[in-house]
Simulated scan of single mutants.
Amino acid sequence: MLRGLRVAVIHAPDQDGEALIRQLRRIGCQVQAVWPAPIEPPPGIDLVFMNLDHRFQPAKSWAMSEDAPAVVAILEYENPVILKALIVTGVHGVLVKPLRPAGILSTLVLARWLHGYHRRLDSKVRKLEETIKAQRDISKAARILAEVKGVSESDAFETIRNQATRRRISMSEVAASIIGAQDVLKDLSRDE
């Protein structure tokens, strides 16, 4: 699980940074030292350990992008600005200086687990949002169809279901076609 893990250490070359790199290599990680701090996470990295202080506070995009790595912050001190940066950056773990070998492995494992958990939750949320949007579109299309054909909404819903089955496409695709057709007709009637 950890052997071959690609880790970037964003830390000035000093005693703490070197100690962290040595410990990560002992664990079996492929470590890449990065300094100065980049604007974006290094590509192809699974986990980032980064020194977080008043000089370097990465943008929100570090945590928001889909392929963002897990992030562990390294702190020299705590204050309201740094604590806000922890939240904005979306870190998955924290180490406090002076760094010691004890705690690095457990922080790494928990950060990876938390990162994976958040990814799974984000995926579920996206799927639920898509399902809700599809249901709204299907309901809107059923209302449009009911009005145009002069039938009940339940009959219009059945028509949409039958069209989807016959064409072997989703009901939301049929609904999108109906909504799109209505929009085109509205545009045409405005042009006249």
Rank of each mutant, 00 (worst) to 15 (best):
M1K: 06
R3L: 14
G4N: 07
L5H: 08
P13V: 13
D16H: 12
D16E: 14
L20F: 03
L20W: 05
Q23P: 04
A33K: 07
A37V: 07
P41C: 06
P43N: 08
P43L: 13
G44Y: 01
I45C: 08
L47H: 03
A59M: 13
S61G: 10
S65F: 14
E66C: 11
A68W: 07
V72G: 12
E78Q: 05
P80I: 12
L83W: 12
K84N: 09
G93Q: 09
V94K: 02
L95G: 02
L99R: 04
R100I: 12
G103A: 03
G103R: 01
L105K: 03
T107K: 09
V109N: 05
A111G: 11
A111P: 08
R112P: 04
L114E: 09
G116C: 12
Y117G: 04
R120Q: 12
L121I: 15
L121D: 01
D122G: 15
D122M: 15
S123W: 12
K124G: 11
E129V: 08
E129T: 01
R136Q: 13
R136A: 09
R136N: 11
R136W: 07
D137M: 15
K140V: 15
R143G: 00
K149E: 02
V151G: 00
E153L: 03
A156K: 00
I160M: 02
R167W: 09
E173V: 11
E173M: 09
V174D: 01
A175P: 01
A176F: 05
G180F: 02
L185E: 09
D187G: 12
L188F: 10
